[in-house]
Simulated scan of single mutants.
Amino acid sequence: MFDLVKWGILLKVLPWVGLFAIAKAGMHWLHWEPWAFSALTGSLFSAVTFVIALILSGTLSDYRACEGMPSQIANALESIYDLDRIIATKYPDYQPQPLQQALAQIGRSLLDWLTADKEFAIVDEAIDRLNPILAALLVMDSNNAGIVTYLHAEQAKIRMVSRQMRNNRDTDFLGAAYVLLWLFLGSSILALLLIGAERFSENLTVSTLLFTLFVYLLFLVEDLDNPFEYDGKSSVDVGLAPLEKVCAKLGVPMASR
């Protein structure tokens, strides 16, 4: 209930709400409220609500697509790890540690890239380290060709999903849509400042609540637009718990995170 991460967006909005309330009180004191609420201003607020809802819907769709990416990588790493142990059981001369260490390095590099602001190149390098290990496994016994093919497919899945995460992290989903959003939002805030009413307390309360709603949704859209931020400021980053659990299983030390 009182998790600061959950309330992070509201805490960022509150200073702006305070400034708006002061500006609204100043406009009233200076008698700079020439407008009255009408169907025309109502249509403006309806348009703002529609634009925000449309952009928020698209952003939520992209966010949900990103939400399962850490689990996909975790499942691939765990599948390779399980098969590595099965091979070690079947072939007593096989050493499973090199492949396990390579998987641990992939998990470590992903966590370092996401949470420690490292370059993505460390992820590609870690994934490429699987190649000589798979080649050695294929040479050991030609009957393992199907196993190596499966492991290579899981490697390709890890590479594809991690690069999708990079693209989602480096690219805004919305881009030019923010221009339209800011235009309508600015217009609605100006209208809220200029609209007067017989009872100032009622006018101030409703205007402040509408301002809070609009600005909160704007911050939420911007937060959802980068689901892999992990800078301590975001409230809706994609959870890394599945990836962290697999990394712990592979022996990734906590300090590397």
Results as ranks from 00 to 15, higher is better:
Phe219Val: 00
Trp35Ile: 06
Ala177Arg: 02
Lys249Tyr: 13
Gly68Gln: 13
Phe2Glu: 13
Asp237Cys: 05
Val221Arg: 00
Leu114Pro: 01
Arg108Asn: 12
Asn167Trp: 08
Ser234Pro: 04
Gly186Met: 02
Tyr91Arg: 10
Leu192Ile: 12
Trp16Ile: 00
Ile106Asn: 08
Leu110Ala: 03
Ala116His: 11
Glu244Arg: 15
Phe120Asn: 10
Leu110Gly: 01
Val179Arg: 00
Asp112His: 04
Leu185Arg: 04
Gly251Ala: 10
Thr49Ala: 14
Phe50Arg: 08
Leu240Asp: 05
Ala39Leu: 14
Lys12Gly: 00
Phe50Ile: 14
Tyr63Leu: 15
Val123Gln: 11
Leu224Arg: 00
Val48Tyr: 09
Ile55Asp: 08
Ala21Cys: 12
Gly239Leu: 06
Gly58Asn: 12
Asp172Thr: 06
Ala121Leu: 08
Asp170Ala: 11
Glu119Asn: 14
Ile86Pro: 04
Tyr178Phe: 14
Lys90Phe: 06
Ser187His: 03
Pro15Ser: 10
Leu240Thr: 05
Ala102Arg: 09
Ala177Ser: 10
Gln72Val: 09
Glu154Asn: 12
Ser61Tyr: 09
Ser235Pro: 11
Asn144Leu: 14
Leu213Cys: 03
His31Ile: 11
Asn131Met: 12
Gly186Phe: 06
Lys118Thr: 01
Gly107Gln: 08
Val252Ile: 11
Arg199Tyr: 04
Thr212Tyr: 02
Thr41Tyr: 12
Ser188His: 04
Phe20Val: 00
Gln100Trp: 04
Gly26Glu: 13
Leu209Asp: 02
Val51Glu: 14
Pro34Thr: 03
Val148Phe: 05
Leu44Tyr: 01
Met1Arg: 02
Ala136Ile: 13
Ser162Trp: 07
Arg163Ser: 06
Asn203Ala: 11
Leu185Gly: 08
Glu78Asp: 13
Ile147Gln: 10
Gly58Met: 03
Gln95Ile: 10
Arg85His: 13
Val236Glu: 03
Leu174His: 00
Val252Asp: 06
Gly8Asn: 11
Cys247Ile: 04
Gln97Glu: 15
Gly175Lys: 01
Arg64Tyr: 07
Gly42Thr: 09
Ala21Asn: 06
Ser235Val: 11
Leu192Ala: 12
Met140Gly: 14
Leu130Trp: 10
Val13Ser: 05
Ala177Lys: 04
Lys24Ile: 00
Ser235Phe: 05
Lys157Asn: 06
Leu209Asn: 03
Gln72Asn: 08
Val215Tyr: 01
Leu183Lys: 03
